[in-house]
Nucleic acid binder design. Sequence first.
DNA 1: TCACTATACGAACGATCGTGCGTAAAATAA
DNA 2: TTATTTTACGCACGATCGTTCGTATAGTGA
Lengths: 216, 216
Amino acid sequence: MTQIDGRRVRGDASRRLVLANAVDLASIEGLDGLSIGRLATAAQVSKSGVATLFGTKERLQLATVEAAAQRFRETVLEPARVEPRGIRRIVALLDAWIAYSRDRVFPGGCFFNAAVSEFDAKPGPVRDAIAEAIESWNGYLRVSVGYAVELGELAADADPALLAFECTALLDYANSRSVMTGSNEPYRLARRAMVSRLLAAGADVEVLRPLAEHVD
Amino acid sequence: MTQIDGRRVRGDASRRLVLANAVDLASIEGLDGLSIGRLATAAQVSKSGVATLFGTKERLQLATVEAAAQRFRETVLEPARVEPRGIRRIVALLDAWIAYSRDRVFPGGCFFNAAVSEFDAKPGPVRDAIAEAIESWNGYLRVSVGYAVELGELAADADPALLAFECTALLDYANSRSVMTGSNEPYRLARRAMVSRLLAAGADVEVLRPLAEHVD
DNA sequence: TCACTATACGAACGATCGTGCGTAAAATAA
DNA sequence: TTATTTTACGCACGATCGTTCGTATAGTGA
């Protein structure tokens, strides 16, 4: 039986508070643009308090990436798990992703879209952590498409890797365009493209209805 | 008859030199991460020399965006103009864009992908300049698709806006994935997706050959 | 000739950055 | 109790940031 440590409890609460501000700030300013001083101001703690809790800026960035990944999982992955494996879960995932972007779960749009563009040419632990989070989401979607093929809900010759690639491309681009223009039209375009693509892959039109008919 | 000014000639040469370094650095470090000091070191001029030529950092960023747009036009748009309007020019544009990304015309991958993610949530003149450059490219591709429809090279019910949206999404995502992983596989996936999408829109399979058969 | 402009640099400004040190308080462990 | 760990802060350090000022040089015009 592991006893709880009141100091750790307090520290974890502080870390959560700081990280909640960190992911929001980083989705706007970027993971590098996020400075410890401004973060401390936003979280209403002292600058050296942030330094105490995270050590270095790189460790703060790593913790921020993990906090963002958790918020993503809670917002996109968890809700879709109520749907059974196969095409229904795919539809739930794609729909949840659009809601995640459209509702600005991160105020600057998808955290990982911004993080990838910022760090894709900067090797190091932070880049690796971002890559792993992306890879995890991509893999989850790809495997989900694979289930649908195995279950006969998509054509046997459908390529899960290609289909997942296309959907992710459309989602990411819709996010980028919406944040840039402030319009929801990109989400409607992405929905149309994904629906017609899934139909071409043999999906049942009825099952696609949540994705096709949702208004953004 | 406007006489040339030797001082301006010299200054323009310096500006070009500095901007060539600026776009390369910014494609890696970002437009904000790009600092005047490091830029001066890279371009082998003094820090205050850069300040003299561009005034403020914001004006340097604006000039950098314009320099990047020019390099993009020279690399992607100009070569495709040798092809006639319609599906052939579309194929040339898409193929040139993949080469532009794959050959790392900007060392950090597509300059505008990085710039959009960095500035989409930061209102101001720099964001506006980036948005205008993106809009210009998107519009050019959309109009090109429209020509192909008008010429009967694509189905009459094909939606140019949607088709251009899908292709841009695939191109941007292929760029992002390739820079992140160092692989050319994303370009092959994007090619396959675009070819099948254009075929579904009624394109002639022969005309798509340059896009379909090119090896990255 | 002389005044003016554009380029270019060195030096320095105040501001902010990430980080380390010393200290204090709270909780745990001896 | 005493010793140790964790959190949290104030303070200051060196480094770098964008910017400004003064100065020098070269080219343009009157």
